[in-house]
């Protein structure tokens, strides 16, 4: 499977995802058009105020979104991207996507209370296991090592301090 732009036969009958995304684009455009009116336009703003481009962009969103909807309904389907690691025939594994997003959320909320190294270990090891790493403890060991190396090199070498967190606060080379 080496070509990237083959036409795919439209097998699924209703392209929910495609219509959904295009609908989202239209909705965002409508929202932009409505909200653009409530942007304060200073009277002294001269010829072109802060509202003009929002109106333009809102219009462009609506029009391009509608154009995609029309194209999809006429059978011109969008084509999912190809890649070296993407299987052409596999169906979408929503569980994996959901778990990855969840891990990312946990990471966001762990950075400050637990420190960056811990949060990064959770993100790396968790994602690796979700994506199929075995055995799980090896993923954790590698994640922890990676997080500590990054923490140390960013704090020490690059001068970007990441919060070390309560567990590792005392370790001098992990602080910026």
């Amino acid at each position: 499977m080496t070509t990237t732009r083959q036409e795919r036969p439209a097998e699924r009958t209703v392209p929910v995802g495609e219509l959904g995304f295009a609908g989202g684009v239209v909705a965002l455009g409508v929202f932009a058009l409505v909200r653009a009116g409530s942007i304060n336009e200073p009277l002294t703003a001269g010829s072109m105020g802060p509202r003009a481009l929002p109106y333009l962009v809102g219009g462009a969103l609506v029009l391009s979104g509608l154009a995609v909807v029309a194209a999809v309904l006429r059978g011109h389907r969008g084509e999912a991207e190809h890649g070296e690691d993407v299987a052409d025939d596999e169906h979408t594994d929503w569980r994996v996507v959901g778990m990855l997003v969840a891990l990312f959320l946990v990471h966001v909320f762990l950075i400050i209370p637990a420190g960056w190294p811990v949060a990064a270990t959770v993100l790396f090891s968790g994602s690796a296991v979700v994506l199929g790493a075995k055995p799980w403890w090896r993923a954790i060991v590698i994640g922890l090592l990676l997080a500590l190396v990054l923490q140390a090199s960013f704090a020490g070498g690059l001068g970007v301090s990441l919060p070390a967190g309560p567990l590792l606060e005392g370790v001098s080379f992990l602080r910026g």
Partner: peptide, 28 residues
């Protein structure tokens, strides 16, 4: 591959660029 999708993507980018305080008038 499709002009409409390209322009939609373009418009989304323009919209994200709009978010924030306008540099000239100072409006949100």
């Amino acid at each position: 591959s499709s002009i409409a999708r390209g322009l939609a993507s373009l418009s989304l980018g323009l919209f994200i660029g709009l978010i924030g305080v306008d540099q000239i008038s100072g409006q949100q």
